[in-house]
């Protein structure tokens, strides 16, 4: 389980959020939605313990599987060496990874479908491939909480679909609490059970995704008119997507 209880964060005189409370139990997948600067990332960092809280507290296990948006590291490790770092917490300060840890790392790579990169250099991979590897590293920690910072934000459509499919697979297993931030409400509709909307005035709204991610709420959230559109998915099943009213070209 991961969550915040009555959390408050201020930068100088500006309150990013206060009285923010939510908890995500095992088996639930929650999306955090909000415009830039409304505290999505701050909420994420608070949950992970990277951001000092001015009030309230966080609830989180000692180790959380964290998938950063991009790996900032310049170092040129091979993919398997990157993934095996997920085992670091259980190895301690002077520990060295053994065959078992490499086994776990390989299993994690297998789970995200990235086994074929194992011996390649991380910095030679594309953005989509890197995110898969970072997801594998988060899985290799063995934590039952997974936190992703804007997964798919920098990915093309094919890679977005692949990542969403993968996360949905992890969600269906119902053995982890999964939290992710996103700019795209459709990502939340596609794979989240619940959603947290960072509304204006340091106010937040949490609920089941189909009750919370609605055009009315999203209009309040982004200040842009939003509409549902009906479409049929690749498997023929009817789906609903939500789009800003400025999307598309004017039909003649």
């Amino acid at each position: 389980m991961i969550g915040l209880n009555q959390a408050r964060v201020r930068f100088g005189t500006r309150t990013i959020f206060e009285n923010l409370s939510f908890s995500v139990p095992r088996g639930e997948c929650m999306a955090i939605l909000g415009p830039n600067g409304r505290g999505k990332t701050t909420a994420l960092r608070s949950m992970l313990g990277f951001q000092r809280l001015d009030g309230g507290e966080r609830q989180a296990p000692a180790i959380v599987g964290y998938v950063p948006q991009t790996a900032s590291s310049q170092a040129s490790y091979t993919v398997i060496d990157v993934v095996v770092m997920g085992r670091a917490a259980s190895l301690g300060l002077f520990g060295q990874p053994g065959p078992e840890d490499f086994g776990d790392a390989r299993a994690a790579l297998e789970r995200v479908g990235a086994s074929r990169f194992a011996a390649e250099r991380f910095d030679h991979l594309s953005g989509g491939e890197r995110q898969l590897v970072l997801l594998a590293r988060a899985l290799a920690t063995g934590s039952d909480v997974l936190v992703l910072d804007e997964p798919g934000a920098a990915l093309d459509l094919a890679n977005q679909q692949r990542l969403l499919g993968l996360l949905d697979g992890l969600r269906q297993a119902r053995d982890k609490a999964i939290v992710f931030t996103t700019h795209d409400p459709n990502h939340a509709l596609a794979i989240a059970d619940t959603a947290l909307l960072m509304l204006p005035d340091a106010h937040a709204l949490k609920g089941p995704v189909h009750e919370v991610v609605t055009p009315e709420h999203l209009e309040r959230l982004y200040g842009v008119p939003m509409r549902f559109v009906a479409l049929s998915g690749s498997d023929g099943v009817a789906q609903r997507a939500v789009l800003p009213a400025f999307a598309g070209a004017r039909a003649a």
């Binding site: 599987g65 900032s72 590291s73």
Partner: peptide, 15 residues
């Protein structure tokens, strides 16, 4: 190897 990562990443891995 872990410490050579970004600070947040290193922390999340238990360092």
């Amino acid at each position: 190897n872990v410490l050579s990562l970004d600070e947040a990443e290193a922390k999340s891995l238990g360092a």
